[in-house]
Each structure stands twice: as C-alpha cells, then as structure tokens.
Design a protein around this nucleic acid. Sequence first.
DNA 1: TAGATTGTTAATCGATTAACAATC
DNA 2: TAGATTGTTAATCGATTAACAATC
Lengths: 235, 235
Amino acid sequence: MPASPTRRIPEATVARLPVYQRILLELVRAGTTTVSSDRLAEMARVNASKVRKDLSFLGSFGTRGSGYEAEYLLAQIDRELGLDGDWPVAIVGLGNLGRALANSHGFTSRGFRIGSLFDVEPSLVGTRIRGVTIRHLDEFHEAVAEDPPAIGVIATPAADAQGVADLLVGSGISSIINFAPRVLAVPPEVLLRYVDLSIELQVMSFYLSHRDQLGTVAASPALPHAVGLTSGEPA
Amino acid sequence: MPASPTRRIPEATVARLPVYQRILLELVRAGTTTVSSDRLAEMARVNASKVRKDLSFLGSFGTRGSGYEAEYLLAQIDRELGLDGDWPVAIVGLGNLGRALANSHGFTSRGFRIGSLFDVEPSLVGTRIRGVTIRHLDEFHEAVAEDPPAIGVIATPAADAQGVADLLVGSGISSIINFAPRVLAVPPEVLLRYVDLSIELQVMSFYLSHRDQLGTVAASPALPHAVGLTSGEPA
DNA sequence: TAGATTGTTAATCGATTAACAATC
DNA sequence: TAGATTGTTAATCGATTAACAATC
C-alpha cells in the first residue's frame, strides 16, 4: 500500500500540498473525521481528479466508498512536506513586515521556529519578539554559527535586500524567501522564492483589464499561482 | 508588427510578466537602454527561449542583433498588464501586515492606489496612512459606494477573514487577495488569490527535506511558484 | 560583411482531466 | 446488495525548450 520507494512528486503537486494541509487542519479542528476528494476539491477550488491524483503520489490513503480519514491524511502530508522536522528560520528586517512575519501562523505551525532575528535599527536591537531577541546584523555570522538557520527570510527595504542576500549566502544558507521588492542575484544552487504584493496586484490587474474585453479573456489563472519568479536547482 | 488582435496570453506567461516588468524597471533606473533575452533570462532565472516566447505574445518588440529597447518594452508590458489604468485597492486590517502593505512598493508603482483602509480597532480608526484615513469597517458599504475598489486586500487575523470576504463580495468586489492564513469560501466568479508565508515555508521544507535524499529529488520548483491556491473563472 | 540576437517552429515534456474499473 | 468514492488509465491540453532561419 505505500507508494513505490522512488516516487517523485511533481512540482505542481508539491505546490498544492500546503493547500490541502491547511484545509485538512481546518477540517480536523472543526471535528471532521472523513473527507472526500470532492469536498477537498471544492475547498481548494480545484478539480477532484486532481486532488486524487495529487494524493495518490503520497500513497493510497483513501477508502473507496467513504473517502479519506482527515487526521491520518494530514499526518501523511506533514510527513511528506518535512513538517515533522524542525527548521530554524532567520528573519532579517523587523519593520512592519518582518514583525508581521515573526508573529505569523508560519511559526506557530508545525515544522518551523524562529531561529534568529536581525535588524540594524538601534531601537529594535535588544528587544524581543515571541521570546527571541533581535540581534544586530553585525552579529550575523556568530549567531548563525551557533544555530544555523535552514531558511533565511529577507524583509528589509528593497535597497538592502541584495546585501542581505549576499550575507545569507555567504554564511551557507541555501534557501531564501525574499519579501523585498527587488530582483536578487544569488548562485544557481540557492533556492530562492519571492513573495510580493506588487506582483499579485499586477496579475490581478491583467485579469481585471482583460475580463470584459470581447471574448479575449485568457484562461483563469491556475491555482498554484505565481507570486514571483525563480528557484534554484536541487543539489 | 503588432500581434494579432486575438492574441491570448498564456497563464504561465501572465505570471511572468510582472517579473520582467520589475527587472526592466530596475534596468531602466540603472541607465540600461538595451537588453537581450539572455540577460533578462539570467536575471529572471529562466530559459532565454522562454523570455523570447513570452515577449512574442505581446508583439515583436525586439531588434535582431541587438535586443530589446528597455524603456519601450517596459511600456508595452505595463500596457498589457493594465498598469496604465488606475485601480483603487481597499485594504482591510491595518495591523503590522496591513501597514506593511499600505506602505509597500505596490502602491507607489504605476497602476494602483490606496482607495480606502478599514479596521475595527478604535485606536487605529481615524489615523492616516499615506494620506488615507482609516475608517471603521462599519462604514464599509458607504465608503465603497463613494469610490468602489477594484481589488480588496484582506490583512486581518485568520478568524475574521471569512467575514471580511463576505463583506467584500457583498459589496460587489470581484477580486480579492487574501493574506490571512485561512481558506476562504467565495462564489466561483470571484478572482481569489492567496499570499502566504506558511505556504512558502512549507514548499521550502519539502525541497529541503528531499534535497539530499538518494537521487529522489524532484525537479526544481518552477519559477511562477505557488503560494497558495485558487482563482475564479473569468467573467 | 560578420557577428549577434530575435522570432518562430516543432519536438518534448509535464500537468490536467474525464472516465471507469476496483472496491469499500 | 446498492451506493459511494477511490485510484489509475489514457487522452488531451498547455508549457518548455532547443534549434535555426530571418535579419539587424
């Protein structure tokens, strides 16, 4: 019943697993024990065949005639996503955005913890967020040597983003999420992802401005939707 | 030389246009006048063929032998994205995240403006961000009647997100960007996009935990990368 | 001209989806 | 059993990419 040992999960499926994960989390909290692919599909706004195909890459966890046991499926997805691990994350930049991130769901959910926080602003250095003291960026290398982060998050002003990226890469961090509205240059082996309101707004703008034109409207944007660019090659 | 009048831009291309847009903006600011598909591809971390194909959907704007005129290409992309329009955006929720959004690049760049801001917190209502006064959510319907937003942004705590979504949809807004870590139910014709740190972190976690395993690593995540789910059908 | 680079073709690859046999 | 729903197949669709003729 487990999938073959050499299962290779398609990228498009990986992108949807966190979505199913969140849906299942909400369902489980609401007391749901069993869920069908139809229901999952409705909530994720995707095709039910796609849900079944996606889940089939992880194994055969459903029961014909009744559906999936929500809690069990959730555990399987967590395992697949590596959320049974403990990934320390370093956040650089604790302005409004950085503070929002540090206080976000991302770090209260399984798999992640705030490893370290950095800023250069004297009034912020030394203060604490969620029990973690903000350190000066000058201390970056020693802090990282103590507790090496798995993922670096850039939440600085755009002008500082490349410098911080260089620092992260220089310290051996190979996964970066960039919230600064700036295109970054990093070595090709570094996993780099962008999260960006402007880009989302622009994609919306495209669909808004093409919506009512003749019949010229393109297909609706697919669900694992773009927010930016980029990624690194796997090792 | 313009593309056929019935050009239909593929979804994957639409997702990359904002990326090219940003790169061109940075190049133009840095004084670059001409750029090749190779250079653009390098900065966007995609294949050069893909850049040329993407741009060819907009028309034939390059010059064989030398490349693209940066400023002109930028203008064409802006036009295609509808950034020559003026889209008022309403932001609901002005905690750290909402404030970060209101002050972000998204609203200082072409095409968008902060139309209205809403919160329920008495200490916030009446204060101003970038010249716009925060109003109480109770005033939502009258405010929206005065100046109907094209796009609604949800930046509230997760628990309030569905209620706000209902309010937005009820007032006729058909494009929503949700920053709250909650799955929303909205009618199928509503364009809904999610932006979410947790989801980004989870996708990173997957690639991190599969990186060194045997040769089992999946393909690197494609650049228009997933951050969530969903979208509405075009009208 | 010689070198460079576009725009486009066509082959390939990956993702989506309807359909249905398997089976609870 | 009858009804429901999975897991998987196979056809289809869309996206990627190498290659190269066109052409500046």
